[in-house]
Computed example of a mutant assay.
Amino acid sequence: MYVAVKGGEQAIARSLELLAEARRGDTAVPELELAQIREQLRLGVARVMQEGSLYDEELAALAIRQAAGDMLEAIFLLRAYRTTLPRFGYTQPLDTTAMRVRRRVSGTFKDIPGGQVLGPTYDYTQRLLEFDTTTPAVVKSAETPLPSNMPRVLDLLDAEALIERIDAGSDPEPMDLTREPLMFPADRATRLQNLARGDEGFLLSMAYSTQRGYAESHPFAGEIRMGEVDVVVCPEELGFAIEIGAVTLTECQMINQFHGGNGVPPQFTRGYGLSMGEGERKAMSMALVDRALRCDELAEPSYAPAQNQEFVLSHSDSVEASGFVQHLKLPHYVDFQAELSLLRTLAAQHATDTDEQPLSAAGGQRP
Rank of each mutant, 00 (worst) to 15 (best):
Q92Y: 05
T97Y: 09
T27D: 10
E356A: 06
G239D: 03
V312S: 01
E39R: 11
S275W: 03
D155R: 00
L43R: 15
D56T: 07
S322V: 04
G364Q: 03
E173K: 10
M99H: 03
T134R: 05
Q365M: 10
A299I: 02
F258R: 07
V105S: 11
A60L: 09
G114C: 14
E51Q: 11
Y55S: 01
D167A: 15
I255Q: 13
E57T: 06
L16F: 12
L19S: 12
E236N: 08
S170W: 00
R87K: 14
D187M: 04
F336C: 13
P181D: 00
S217T: 02
H350Y: 08
Q36I: 04
L342D: 08
L157R: 01
F131I: 14
K282Y: 00
K110L: 01
K140L: 03
E223V: 09
F311G: 08
L34Q: 02
K329S: 12
Y2K: 02
M183H: 11
C234M: 07
L298N: 04
N262W: 08
A67T: 03
E21I: 00
K329M: 11
L94K: 08
T27Y: 00
I112V: 12
T134E: 14
P219H: 07
A361P: 07
E160W: 09
E21A: 00
L18C: 03
P113F: 11
A63M: 05
V117F: 02
Q92N: 12
T190Q: 05
M284G: 04
M284Q: 02
C234Q: 12
M286S: 09
E243Q: 14
E173L: 05
A35L: 15
G8K: 03
E278Y: 13
Q116M: 09
V247Q: 09
R23D: 00
A221V: 11
F240S: 13
E228G: 10
E21M: 00
Y303G: 01
A20N: 04
P265Q: 03
G44Y: 15
T144N: 13
Y272S: 02
Q253T: 08
V139F: 15
L128D: 10
G7M: 07
T250Q: 12
R294D: 10
L182E: 12
N149K: 13
A68N: 06
A361W: 04
M175I: 09
Y272M: 05
I163C: 05
S316R: 04
P219M: 11
A347K: 05
L78M: 12
P120N: 10
Q126T: 14
D353Q: 09
T91R: 13
D290H: 03
E356Y: 02
Q357D: 04
L118S: 08
L94S: 05
P145G: 11
H315C: 04
G239L: 04
D230G: 08
A80Q: 14
L34E: 01
E173Q: 11
P145F: 13
M183E: 13
E180H: 07
F88G: 07
L293Q: 02
G25P: 01
E280A: 07
G69L: 01
A137N: 12
Q50D: 12
A20W: 02
P30F: 13
R82F: 06
I224Q: 13
G8V: 01
N149W: 14
L274V: 06
M71I: 15
H218N: 10
P86V: 04
G364H: 03
D296V: 02
